[in-house]
Simulated assay, not measured.
Amino acid sequence: MPDHYIGLMSGTSLDGVDGVLADCSAASTRVLQHAWRPFPAELAAELLALNGQGDNELHRAALAANALSRVYTQVVADLLQAAGLPATAICAIGAHGQTVRHRPGAFDGIGYTLQLNNPALLAELSGITVVADFRSRDVAAGGQGAPLVPAFHQALFGRAGQTVAVLNIGGISNLSVLRDDAVLGWDCGPGNALMDAWCRQHTRQPFDEQGRWAASGRVHAGLLQVLLQEPYFALPAPKSSGRDLFNPAWLAGKLTGFETLPTEDVQATLTELTARVCAADVLRHAAGSRRLIVCGGGALNTHLMRRLQAHLSALEVMSSEQQGLPPLQVEAAAFAWLARKTLQRETGSLKSVTGARGARVLGAIYPA
């Protein structure tokens, strides 16, 4: 009998929820259905606002978690309807939640990571067991709690005797380096988050489709150098980041002295920043890799993919779709895979990636 799992992912791009229904019974996860629902505008705005300090945060965060869980429930219903399956056919839902704060190791030496979610409500509404809160156990064990996808990337894209590089470009970009002796992974820095924020501010569009606006501008060398001076880029792995650092306020501070730049030149420079930072990490840590597999929304940005290829001329830069899984399905599939790991009491984290004291079984289970 197939092991049917659902994975749900709403990332730092804050555009909506990707969901997959996957068969995890074989050695490799096989996606059977994919569904996506956009966030209602008011929910997207509230989730973005909750990334920073504000009034009445606990109340607002609780209600946002409820609203998010309702969108999750709708995506689950879409998947079941498309597959013609009842809820009882699903072993569990892996629901990552919406990261609004991520500060591992900070303040008291332990820090925290916070993903808004109401998995109890999701289990109640869907009638399916839910696995959630995947990051907290790794943070408690001294790890970064992120990225969690490298273990899945190894299971999906790893090749014996080869070094494989996998770059996920969501709001934040993260790189997995898959080798026989070890799997490495970390957050490179901004992915789409800064580009999307600038695009919303100046074009009223949620993102720069295929990077056309960026392609119409020119990279400003002076601004690019200021952006590249961010200390995070020079930190050694393990490391992770998020909107706590790379946000509109960070960008506004860097733009001091560049206020007269054409807005399309700023967009071109932000795109180049993402490409330059990611390419530098590939060159530094993935020596011997013949290809870079790109997933996440950034894989759909044609201009960004061209800039990555320009910086990585010795490698073939390709979409994960060329490896059998479309880029918008990879992270959701990872959380379906992680949910199965949790139910099987198998470890889902990697010490070599997060820096924790050891691999841990991740997630909390909310039975149907």
Rank of each mutant, 00 (worst) to 15 (best):
164 V>S: 10
165 A>C: 11
166 V>I: 10
166 V>G: 05
166 V>Y: 11
167 L>A: 12
168 N>S: 12
168 N>Y: 14
170 G>H: 13
170 G>P: 06
170 G>I: 07
172 I>V: 14
172 I>T: 08
173 S>C: 14
173 S>V: 05
173 S>T: 05
173 S>P: 11
174 N>G: 12
174 N>C: 15
174 N>T: 12
175 L>R: 07
176 S>A: 15
176 S>Q: 12
176 S>L: 11
176 S>E: 14
176 S>W: 10
177 V>A: 10
177 V>D: 10
178 L>N: 09
178 L>V: 13
179 R>I: 06
179 R>K: 14
179 R>P: 04
180 D>C: 08
181 D>P: 03
181 D>L: 04
182 A>S: 14
182 A>H: 12
182 A>Y: 04
183 V>Y: 03
183 V>W: 02
183 V>C: 14
183 V>A: 12
184 L>R: 14
184 L>P: 08
185 G>V: 02
185 G>Y: 06
186 W>G: 04
186 W>I: 02
186 W>K: 05
187 D>T: 03
187 D>S: 07
189 G>C: 01
189 G>D: 02
189 G>E: 00
190 P>D: 09
191 G>S: 10
192 N>G: 02
192 N>F: 00
192 N>I: 05
193 A>V: 15
193 A>H: 02
193 A>L: 08
193 A>F: 00
194 L>C: 08
195 M>T: 07
195 M>S: 05
196 D>A: 01
196 D>G: 04
196 D>S: 06
196 D>F: 00
197 A>R: 01
197 A>L: 00
198 W>D: 03
198 W>C: 04
199 C>T: 15
199 C>V: 09
201 Q>I: 00
202 H>Q: 02
203 T>V: 09
203 T>Q: 15
203 T>F: 14
204 R>P: 05
204 R>C: 08
204 R>G: 04
204 R>V: 13
204 R>S: 10
205 Q>V: 03
205 Q>S: 09
205 Q>P: 13
206 P>V: 03
207 F>R: 05
207 F>N: 01
208 D>G: 03
208 D>T: 04
208 D>H: 08
208 D>Q: 10
209 E>H: 15
209 E>L: 15
210 Q>F: 13
210 Q>E: 14
212 R>K: 13
212 R>H: 08
212 R>C: 04
213 W>F: 06
214 A>Q: 02
214 A>G: 06
215 A>Y: 05
215 A>G: 09
216 S>M: 06
216 S>R: 09
218 R>L: 13
219 V>C: 12
219 V>F: 13
219 V>P: 09
220 H>Q: 06
221 A>V: 12
221 A>R: 13
224 L>V: 14
224 L>Q: 12
224 L>Y: 08
